[in-house]
């Protein structure tokens, strides 16, 4: 077997066929469409959004940072529901330890430990990821309440917190800087590093990945550690910016981060997707939220809109569309037969 197998479309030459192939392989289509639609509508109805760029980017960073970590897990076809309470618990950890030099590493370490525990139950014990991370979601939100004594905790070093909220240069606050660093790190990891590229293989066909020698279990550990670490980082950012940690923080993070990742075209069964897609998804949600804030729309209505977008995004997934079109096709011949009779 020395013959190399040509993958679909690779034989195409010429600029436009090649372009079509490249576009056909990308998964971000729906995210781009949503972003363009939102931007087009806003250009007419709420042009203020474009002048409030720092606010908008800050909002995108807020939604996006957890979604980026989540994407690493979704690429492998797993879910990590525990991100929301990892964020809350790590935020509380930052607040209850007075010295920030100890508190921040401790909070980040907690995120890594959460990832390891998640991955242990998923990869070693063999529990479906949604249920293992659901248990962790519950346990960690309990932990956040326990550690904070069920009340919001202020951080001891208020000045450091206030300084953290200030722009470093131009409109770039530490939050935005960290978001882009995380984005670049994860993007490079899943596109250039072998371990990261193996995420796609693990998600696409786990058995095949295993058979070709990819350490599947270790990759699952890697993915959940990334996701745990990133959401802990988000918790640190939240607490430092607000200078106070609430055990209920991040209750809407779950919705927003999943929405960002799924709108960005990440296939929930794994194997397809991109970090850039998540960025696009987070951008469209962030712009939308800022616009809704500026228009004075209440938070529940915003959540309804984001929920609706998530619902539409998840049922317009290519595989969902295939499933439904197959059904529609299956019913059509029946009708024609009846009409013929």
């Amino acid at each position: 077997m020395t013959e190399t197998i040509q993958l679909g479309g690779a034989k195409e030459t010429g600029f436009f066929p090649r372009l079509r192939t490249i576009i056909g392989r990308r998964t971000e289509g729906r995210g781009v469409i949503l972003l363009l639609v939102i931007l087009a509508v806003l250009a007419f109805t709420q042009p203020l959004v474009f002048t409030a760029l720092p606010v908008t980017i800050g909002r995108i960073a807020l939604i996006g940072i957890v979604a980026l970590g989540l994407t690493a897990v979704i690429l492998m076809g797993e879910l990590d529901l525990s991100v929301a309470s990892t964020l809350a618990a790590s935020g509380v950890v930052v607040a209850i330890i007075p010295d920030l030099r100890i508190a921040i590493p401790a909070a980040l370490l907690m995120g890594i430990v959460v990832g390891i525990i998640n991955a242990f139950f998923i990869a070693i014990v063999g529990i479906a990821s949604f249920i293992a991370s659901l248990g962790m979601l519950f346990a960690l939100s309990g932990l956040a309440f326990v550690l904070s004594n069920e009340v919001p905790v202020s951080i001891a070093n208020q000045d450091a917190g206030l300084a953290f909220g200030q722009p470093l240069f131009g409109p770039v606050t530490p939050r935005i800087l960290l978001f882009f660093l995380v984005f670049i790190a994860i993007q490079l990891f899943v596109t250039k590093v072998k371990a990261g590229r193996e995420f796609f293989a693990v998600g696409g066909n786990r058995q095949a990945a295993y058979d070709s020698g990819i350490p599947v279990k270790r990759r699952i550990f890697t993915g959940f550690i990334i996701s745990g670490f990133v959401s802990a980082l988000a918790g640190v950012i939240y607490t430092l910016e607000l200078t106070v940690a609430t055990p209920t923080a991040g209750s809407t993070v779950l919705l927003a981060s999943f929405a960002a990742a799924i709108i960005g075209g990440n296939y929930l069964k794994g194997g397809r997707g991109s970090i850039i897609g998540t960025l696009i998804g987070a951008s469209s949600l962030g712009v939308l939220q800022v616009a809704l804030f500026l228009s004075g729309v209440q938070v529940p209505v915003q959540n309804t809109l984001i929920g609706a977008i998530l619902l539409i995004a998840v049922i317009t997934d290519p595989s969902s569309l295939r499933a439904i079109s197959a059904r529609v096709r299956a019913t059509l011949p029946d009708r024609t037969k009846v009409e013929a009779q």
């Binding site: 879910l79 919705l255 529940p300 209505v301 959540n303 619902l311 049922i315 997934d317 499933a323």
Partner: peptide
């Protein structure tokens, strides 16, 4: 069922749609 979408995500979305409408 028909769209073969993930139940966790679908019901997460409908939770927020429903609660948002209810609160509104």
């Amino acid at each position: 069922g028909y769209f073969k979408a993930n139940a966790v995500i679908v019901t997460l979305a409908t939770t927020y749609i429903g609660l948002g409408l209810l609160r509104f």
